[in-house]
Amino acid sequence: MQNSYHLGRQPILNRQQELVAYELLFRNSSQRNEAIVSDDFLATLDVIQHAFSTLGASSVLGDKLGFINVNADLLLSDVLELLPPQQVVLEILETVEITPLIVDRCLALKKKGFKLALDDVIQLDDTQRSLLPHISFVKLEVLGMNKSQMNALIRELRAYPLQILAEKVDNPAQHLLCMKLGFDLFQGYYFAKPTILSGSKPQPSQLALLHLLGLINSNADNSDIEMAFKHSPDLTINLLKLVNSVGSNSPKKIDSIAAAITVLGRRQMGRWIHLLAYVQQSGKSIRSNPLVQTAAIRGKFMELLSLKQSPHDQSLADQAFMVGMFSLIDVFFSAPLQELLEPLNLADNVKDALLGEKNALGLLLSQVLLAEDRDPISNSNPPCDFEALLAAMSWANELG
């Protein structure tokens, strides 16, 4: 299946009005050339996915540099390791507090080949000055300053080997003033509004998803799981978005696969990957796709029923969750069930239950399916554990 993407791209020009770079921007749709951003971290993850995975750097940037906004969480995350450092400028948002940890991270990223920029500067404080020897670009927001303020900042910045960019240049008078003041680069509506690149993006291949699920189910090493994600950057980004949205009570963002495994544990991590497979394959959120909701409810319902029957057998409960989640896998992937189960390395009793055998897990699945098929006006309805069903529905709603 497919879903849509939207990516803003605004030119950055030099003094000769030659194109030297683009700023890559988050956009919600192709209809409005603006961004409604509730989370800087997730917005930039979208930009990274669309620019470097969906479309590809060669299509979006050609041989030009790409400026990408990064907040503190993303700056400290290893998601940045997925990007081509020779072509990316990490634009440090004005909201980032320049702590010693941030400075150390910037030095490490510079050593890896990334260029760094300070964004929306209207004045400099001592913490920003500590970064200037390592910065390649400083973006001055010309709308927020008068001529004397800009002149003073430019004189100070000329002590460092960096380029000074005038952003939000919206008219000829501003451009002429910035030229006279000696800016190196220019960006704004006077030159061009952001172009919005939109389209439908294909989901990752079934093979990549099934391989990853197989690693989880065979209890592969964490390093093997991380490597599988590194080969599928869009999977990495979507998993982090999913887990950060609903999967962790930690106040700190989960910013890497290693962190997700550490914070969530292997068992919970595996569950999020199972859920990701459906969300990614369907191209829709949990809430907007009833099949994803059904799979989630089945998994949780079966787990709760298993724990009621065998309160101390968490292993069986985990298998019950897996059977419920995978009971719709042939519908999602539009392929024969036997063929899909083969690479997943499932335990025999899990596989047998999915293929229709009435073992303990198969009987639980039958119970769940009967609950779904209940006739509300029939007097011959099979018994149903409504407490467990309502708890499973509540859990799935929280995911949505």
Rank of each mutant, 00 (worst) to 15 (best):
Gly8Met: 04
Gln10Leu: 02
Pro11Gln: 02
Ile12Met: 07
Gln16Tyr: 09
Leu24Asp: 07
Ser30Gln: 14
Val37Leu: 01
Asp39Gln: 04
Thr44Arg: 00
Gln49Lys: 15
Gln49Val: 09
Ser59Tyr: 12
Val60Ser: 05
Leu65Gly: 03
Leu65Asn: 01
Asp78Phe: 00
Val79Asn: 07
Leu80Asp: 06
Leu82Glu: 07
Val88Ala: 10
Thr95Ala: 12
Glu97His: 09
Ile98Glu: 01
Phe114Val: 05
Lys115Asp: 06
Val121Tyr: 03
Leu131Pro: 04
Leu131Asn: 00
Val138Gly: 05
Leu153Asn: 05
Pro161Tyr: 00
Leu162Ala: 03
Val169Pro: 10
Pro172Asn: 09
Leu177Met: 15
Leu177Tyr: 05
Leu181Ala: 08
Phe183Asn: 06
Gln187Trp: 03
Tyr189Val: 08
Phe191Tyr: 15
Lys193Thr: 08
Ser198Ile: 05
Leu210Tyr: 04
His211Phe: 08
Ala220Leu: 12
Pro233Leu: 10
Pro233Phe: 06
Ile237Trp: 06
Ser248Ala: 04
Ser250Val: 05
Ser250Trp: 04
Ser250Thr: 05
Pro251Leu: 01
Lys252Met: 12
Ile254Pro: 01
Ser256Ala: 00
Ala259Trp: 00
Gln268Ala: 14
Arg271Phe: 13
Gln280Trp: 00
Lys300Glu: 15
Met302Tyr: 04
Leu304Tyr: 07
Leu304Pro: 11
Ser306Glu: 09
Asp313Arg: 02
Leu316Phe: 11
Ile329Leu: 14
Val331Phe: 11
Phe332Thr: 03
Ser334Lys: 14
Gly356His: 14
Gln367His: 05
Gln367Asp: 12
Leu369Met: 12
Glu372Ile: 03
Ile377Gly: 08
Ser378Lys: 13
Asn379Ile: 15
Ala388Val: 05
Leu389Gly: 00
Leu389Pro: 01
Ala391Asn: 09
Ala392Ser: 00
Ser394Arg: 11
Trp395Val: 00
Ala396Trp: 00
Ala396Leu: 02
Glu398Gln: 13
Glu398Ser: 09
Gly400Val: 01
